[in-house]
């Protein structure tokens, strides 16, 4: 190998000192421990028998393993249909959203674009609008556009978020302009610059946002509840919410025990966790970015 001076071999490894490493570990352990408790609680309660699940407090291990909670959820709710609906809406929505948001983010990175600041502010502004202000208008709007009780309605509402646009802009800002310049000099069109330079170099950011947007769409409840009254179009959170909080009336006796409620929660979160474990490869940066060396 290159023996650029034996000094190279005498340098300590480029890491934190053992003490610092230990502290690092301790910190992460603390985070890990506190965060795993509620998850264990949800899991444990979901596998507990009906009466035992009513016990107050944080249960970390079922007194008796049973799938009674899951059975209740299964018989009470049409999960397969809801699962299909959620998947369709979230996948299509996220795909379109990422395309549009990243393009918009790219536009906001162009330094000399006239009205660039105004556009950014405009988009930022849309994030400030509280839901209560548009509560009734959103329903009326969807009605006018004929989007009630439809897949289009579920996909189009909340399709684009200023959050993703501005975050994509942020990640794009660390892409060196020189690359874009040289591509433009070579007569490359904007789309080409965008797709072949900016996107690949922002992959971790892009992946993170894609995943978070998917989660957001999957968990969306407020607007779907507003515009969907046909049970065949219910998304998974709607079905599970309906189940878990069926006892809304003041003195009804239709009671859903905690084990079924927690089972419903587990069922709604499992797809996201599975997706996350797959997406992690991008999120921890398994892909090296060769272009910077270019």
């Amino acid at each position: 190998m290159i023996k650029a001076g034996r000094a190279h071999n005498l340098l300590p490894r480029n890491q934190l000192s053992p003490l610092q490493k230990a502290l690092n570990w301790l910190l992460l352990l603390l985070f890990f421990a506190t965060m795993i408790i509620p998850m264990l609680n949800v899991l444990a309660v979901s596998f507990s028998p009906r009466l035992q699940s009513m016990q107050p407090g944080v249960i970390l291990w079922p007194s008796q393993w049973t799938v009674n909670g899951y059975q209740t959820v299964w018989t009470r709710a049409n999960l397969s249909r809801a699962f299909f609906n959620s998947s369709l809406v979230s996948l299509v929505g996220t795909a379109v959203q990422i395309l549009l948001s990243s393009m918009a983010g790219y536009v906001l990175v162009q330094k000399n674009l006239p009205f660039r600041r105004a556009l950014s502010l405009l988009i930022l502004f849309t994030l400030m609008i509280p839901g209560d202000l548009t509560l009734i208008s959103i329903y009326a709007l969807n009605k006018q556009l004929g989007l009630l009780n439809s897949y289009q309605g579920l996909i189009l509402n909340g399709l684009v978020s200023g959050f993703s646009i501005l975050l994509m802009r942020n990640y794009f800002q660390s892409v060196p302009e020189s690359l874009a310049e040289s591509a433009r000099i070579d007569k490359a069109g904007e789309l080409r610059v965008f797709a072949s330079i900016y996107l690949p170099l922002s992959l971790p950011g892009l992946a993170s946002i894609t995943f978070l947007e998917f989660v957001g769409k999957w968990n969306a409840l407020m607007i779907p509840v507003t515009i969907i009254s046909d049970p065949g179009l219910y998304t998974l959170p709607m079905v599970l919410r309906q189940l878990a909080f069926a006892t809304d009336s003041t003195s009804g006796v239709d009671y859903i025990a905690p084990n079924a409620q927690m089972a419903a929660i587990v069922i709604s979160v499992i797809p996201l966790i599975i997706l996350y474990t797959f997406a992690q490869r991008f999120l921890i940066g398994g892909l090296t970015l060769g272009a910077t060396k270019g």
Binding site: Y171, S174, S202, F211
Partner: peptide, 9 residues
Amino acid sequence: VLLLASLVG
């Protein structure tokens, strides 16, 4: 997650 994305690059 969002901050890590700017570190891994």
